[in-house]
Amino acid sequence: MGTAILDRLLVHCILFLIVSLLLIPSACAAARHTNTTVDCLPSDRSSLLDIIHGVSFGMGIEIHDYPKARGPPVSWKPGSNCCGWEGVTCDPKSGHVSGLDLSQRGINGKLSASLFNLTSLRTLDLSGNFFQGDFPQVGFENLTQLTRLDLSLAGFSGQIPVGISLLTNLISLDLSVAMVIYSPDGLYMEGYYLSNYSQLCHPSFRTLVGNLSNLRDLRLDGVDMSSNLDWGSALSTSMPHLQVLGLSDCNLPGKAVLLYLISFIFKHYFLIYYIVYIFGVAGLLPTDILTSHANLTLLDLTMNPMLSGNLPDFPSNNALQSLSFFGMNLSGNIPDSISNLKHLTTLGFYEFGLTGMIPSSIGNLTQLTYLDLSENNFTGITNSMVS
């Protein structure tokens, strides 16, 4: 009796094993179907094809260390699934195009207005191209879901579109038309590239950033801001989460530095990087930048010949890793408190006009890997200074 029961149990186990093995291929097929790239919407595919229709793809921007042009996106073919195209990302549920990267393609031609039909875009990168004409003044306001927008060195000129000021979800915005090319150590300016002329006038800088409360990264290098007398005040009252700021060669009005920059610095305690390459600003160097930013790791105020004053006393509570001041009109001594910058790896006080003795305390910067104090007016070197 017991043997019969065992036999039946064995038969059931064998049958269960066979059925399980038969079901495995079906389960795998279902899994493969689930992971298949979503089909894009025909309307989005049509808009994408309009963007590359009638434009040419050339060599791209040929400047030192700038990535070479990638050429045309060969996978962009009518009738195919645009969610699988180069540079295209789709929402896995809706199939809408949510990301578009056409950077460094060497595109030469007009930007199609069909771009602004892609209203589900969250990231858009058109940098490193040669789009012709002014920035489109109408259309960006439709892309309300954008979190990242990069139009740097894209070839556009003229007035920054007011519609960008309405993109309240933006985390990163780069509208730079200029690029400063540095030496590998990051201290010497080896070249300068200006893709075109653009300006902030209508809208003003205040209008552009007033509603962009989520911005972490803002770069406007080369954009003419000379008419924005209150740019510093606008900084101090907007973009509370800003971490990276690039305002190289922006023709910033000098008075704003004295009246408003300090207010901005005191308010933004959480800055990770404070990058302001302000060419030609008239005014004193704000000496409390470091004391108000304990989390600052990189500070670069290079090529500001109109910035004058003395180096500040360096606070002990800091996270600075790179400090680069060159081509400025500073004077006085290097303070002994330079030794407080214990995390510093790069220090460049090049072409300043600094005087006096180089303090021996600079030898306490044990993490330092690059040091440049050339083109100053030092009177001597202490024996204990690092070589």
Rank of each mutant, 00 (worst) to 15 (best):
G2E: 13
T3H: 11
R8A: 13
H12P: 00
L17P: 01
S20A: 15
L22T: 09
A27W: 13
A27K: 13
A29Q: 09
A30K: 09
T37C: 11
L49E: 12
G54D: 02
I61T: 05
E62N: 12
I63L: 06
I63D: 02
A69G: 08
V74W: 06
W76D: 10
C82I: 06
T89V: 15
C90Y: 00
D91G: 13
K93P: 00
S94Q: 09
L102I: 07
S103G: 13
R105M: 07
G109E: 01
N117K: 13
L118G: 12
L118K: 00
R122H: 14
N129E: 07
Q132N: 07
D134T: 08
F135G: 08
Q137N: 11
Q137D: 10
T144S: 15
T144Q: 12
L146S: 04
T147S: 14
L149V: 08
L151A: 06
L153D: 06
G155R: 03
F156K: 03
F156I: 04
I160N: 04
P161K: 01
L166S: 14
T168F: 03
N169Q: 15
L170F: 09
L173W: 08
L175N: 02
S176V: 03
I181Y: 03
P184H: 02
P184C: 00
G186A: 09
L187C: 11
L187F: 08
L187V: 13
E190A: 07
Y192A: 05
Y192L: 08
Y192E: 01
S198A: 15
F205A: 10
N211H: 12
N214V: 05
L215E: 06
D217E: 11
L218H: 02
L218D: 03
R219K: 14
L220H: 05
L220F: 05
G222T: 06
S226C: 05
N228T: 08
G232S: 09
S233L: 14
S236I: 07
T237R: 11
M239A: 11
Q243N: 15
Q243A: 10
L247K: 09
K255L: 09
V257E: 01
L259G: 08
I265T: 11
F266Q: 14
K267Q: 13
L271V: 15
Y274S: 12
L285W: 01
T291S: 15
S292T: 10
S292G: 11
H293E: 11
L299C: 01
L301V: 07
T302P: 02
N304E: 07
G309A: 07
P312M: 00
D313R: 10
F314E: 02
F314S: 04
N318Q: 15
N318T: 15
N318A: 13
F325N: 02
F325I: 14
F326H: 12
M328A: 06
P335Y: 09
S339G: 04
G348A: 12
E351T: 07
E351R: 10
G353R: 04
I358C: 01
G363K: 06
Y370C: 03
Y370W: 08
T379C: 08
